[in-house]
Design a binder for these strands. Sequence first.
DNA 1: CCACTAATGTACGAACTAGTGAGTTATTTG
DNA 2: CAAATAACTCACTAGTTCGTACATTAGTGG
Lengths: 213, 213
Amino acid sequence: MSTPGDRQRDADRTRAEILDVAMAEFARSGYAGARVDEIADLTSTTKRMIYYYFGGKEQLYIAALEKAYAEVRAVEKTVDVDHLDPVEAIRTLAQLTFDHHDAHRDFIALVAIENVHRAEHIRKSEVLANLGAPVLDLISRILDAGHATGDFTTGADAIDVHMMISSFCFFRVANQHTFGALFGRDMTAPEHRERLRTMVGEMVVAYLKGAGV
Amino acid sequence: MSTPGDRQRDADRTRAEILDVAMAEFARSGYAGARVDEIADLTSTTKRMIYYYFGGKEQLYIAALEKAYAEVRAVEKTVDVDHLDPVEAIRTLAQLTFDHHDAHRDFIALVAIENVHRAEHIRKSEVLANLGAPVLDLISRILDAGHATGDFTTGADAIDVHMMISSFCFFRVANQHTFGALFGRDMTAPEHRERLRTMVGEMVVAYLKGAGV
DNA sequence: CCACTAATGTACGAACTAGTGAGTTATTTG
DNA sequence: CAAATAACTCACTAGTTCGTACATTAGTGG
């Protein structure tokens, strides 16, 4: 008498376990550096199952990438742009991005790794196309509102603003090791977190207000 | 009668050729992805020479990293901080960083790759320690000058400002592929270059002037 | 409860990959 | 010019790594 919960065999659980381990391993060692045998050893199943469920190393990597992006998809939905004035809205978005990058280290690592491979795998995935659209839409609305109220004077488009915010938040996590080695400061350490979080908000607000002109 | 220029055997030339090819290959494929045989095939010499001159794959990689950093060392020396007012000085530094990252793609790739490996190789290299000091010194002087004149009101330290500038310039190049795949814009394309170059200058100036407060 | 299918384990192989042993030739030096 | 040494070639290997053939067992529908 077996219930679905305590089966010895469970395709979904096995698949999910492989994917979890794969994501961590690829993030840790890169695509070429990760070992299929190592991933298998870190699961409670065998290498055979990786090929049974995913087909091969590359497909497993793509699945891990998709999972990483999926976990992340809807950050921007939490910004209530309609009930916040534009200045606070863009500051909030910047700081949410900061929090998000701070909390998803494996995602950051996988994106960095995928760039080493010139995004060749992302392009093979249909799931990952047009994943950027929602943020751009949100930023556009904030920018429009800000120009309407006169708070924003700088004419920058949504993609540029998104890049400005992302670059700060991404770099801090992705480059923490070389930056730490060269400048002797771990930008991801707790004692720097709040200051840098405030900084990214100030940065984008100051830029959009146009004090630099 | 052989002159030093047309020798059949030339240790320096052989070593340099290996290093050039290695730098490009490691930047292209990562540490684990690069193949010693492939590097050898792309030179006019043999794999045996790689081991003869460098000892092994890892030492070759470290040598390539050191070369990349060396090519780059003295960007900041061209900023004439004493003859520029603080606002123009920091803007100039930001834009020089932009130009520099734009021109040294292999360097960017190698730094990104080195971060995947948590800077473990950089730490093995004595050459690369304290390479960051000069920029920090320069930025400190600009910040001090800016606070003295009253141009800068935001209290940020040199490392933070350096991170702000670097992140923007680095991200644009390093993440061009995933960013392009997700947002349909190649930030490294010529038609975006000048706008983004101006933007990084405006950004840091606006932030330091403190319009966001 | 039996047959069928989905899920899983074992063992193995072909190709690749970093690294080397041993000998050879060019260049320099006494 | 002879001896010594630095630069170089060639062929090889030990170990790894992705992938698979084949056997087996658990769960399920009839």
